[in-house]
Design a protein around this nucleic acid. Sequence first.
DNA 1: GCGACAG
DNA 2: ATCTTGTCGC
Length: 234
Amino acid sequence: MRHRKMEPIINHEWDLNEKEAVKLQQELSLKVTKEDRFPEIQYVAGVDVAYSEQSDLLVAAIVILDASSLQVVESIVVEDAVHFPYIPGLFSFRELPPIVKALKQIKTSPQLVVCDGQGIAHPRRFGLASHLGVIFDIPTIGCGKTRLWGEFEEPSRERGACSLLMDHEEVIGGALRTQDNIKPLFVSVGHRISLETACNWILKLCPQYRLPETTRQADQLVRKALSQINQGSI
DNA sequence: GCGACAG
DNA sequence: ATCTTGTCGC
């Protein structure tokens, strides 16, 4: 099988101040597509980032899962220096640089990427998942453990229950229960996928645990890498 | 000014 | 996210 490495269709500057970052989000958010626009999905990618002791180092991991078996077929871990502080609403400017770096090196191109964070459930409708989706022009889902934006009702307590995340009259995501009696996840459109399809994929990726296998596998990798880095620096 | 605030 | 021990519960 031949592979073609992923390449961004948009290459913008990352060394921005807060005001410039907000302006860029407003511009790029116009490119987000909230409808299903993707081919058959054979590979799904998971992304996660961990921080070292003094938060001066980032470790990002990409895992590629076979969409049917949910088995890992490829993975990569990269390190990068922190170039942006953590600011709610500007999260992508902190975590995306190492993620982009890692995605460029992946040999197996995924047809869908699941992100640990929000998609359009964001004050400017441009969370990490949407940002990643737009610059690579690839379908993405935002899947956060906690809420950033929007109001919602508590979904009923069985797996699959979902209540809409609303910003006034606008639907920006869903609070989705992935297991019975477990706190819901916050699922939102990243890019080129509908909320309904996104929720169905997240449920498919959560056969046993609260978090999607994509996120769990990526989380496991960055944690292992970080512990090895810390041991080597002592 | 006060509370909220993805990871 | 990370710092951190025990502890309640299935």
